[in-house]
Design a protein around this nucleic acid. Structure first.
Lengths: 97, 97
DNA sequence: TTGATATATTTAAATATTTCTATATACTTA
DNA sequence: TAAGTATATAGAAATATTTAAATATATCAA
């Protein structure tokens, strides 16, 4: 992974909302359905649905999170390979809530 | 390290100029004198001296880089403990220039 | 002390990011 | 088909970041 790609990955997690999402995913076996995580993150962080949608799409753009459609909702999954390639260690994200 | 501190560290390296500085420091035994690194970074990245000064101070604020005065210049040194605590693995930064 | 070198600060402009409201799209279920 | 649920997009405002020019400060060396 080159420096520019690494910057995209780092930028994607260098935000308190998105880092909270990534930590939430890391704590839930790295996979969680949409309404569960979107609602709990939106509630916990007091942000609107479109704002959450924007943050998730940034993580997807950076390839840090994969999403798949599951009927009406989406399922979000951490892409650990991308984080590792950028030099980020997920085990560190599991330690504190 | 809590999430907010981690965001400060991630933000400090989530920029192509500052990531280049960190990589340069990592490749030089994590310690290098000012004129060497400031000039080479400023030249390589075509940025002005005040801009470089600003970037270094952001890294220092985040405690990712330590600085000490050495007469007229400054010596910059990576603070690996901070990066590790934030879940960032420096060995990854040594692989490609 | 004077001039040169190294770095910092101030100010301001350009750009990017974060967030919301309003609205749209997609799918499910009655 | 119609209503409800889940997520996305468009537009706009507030804020933050990046950068440079001009100037200031600190140290060295003659």
């Amino acid at each position: 992974m080159n420096t520019n790609q690494q910057v995209v990955v780092l930028k994607s997690i260098a935000d308190s909302t998105r880092l909270a999402i990534v930590k939430k995913l890391a704590q839930n076996s790295c996979e969680i359905t949409g309404s569960e995580i979107v609602n709990s993150c939106a509630f916990a962080l007091k942000l609107s649905q479109p704002t959450m949608s924007h943050h998730f799409s940034k993580l997807v753009q950076a390839n840090v999170v994969r999403e798949k459609k599951l009927g009406n909702e989406k399922c979000y999954q951490l892409n650990i390979a991308t984080l590792t390639a950028a030099g980020i260690n997920i085990t560190n994200f599991l330690e504190e809530s």
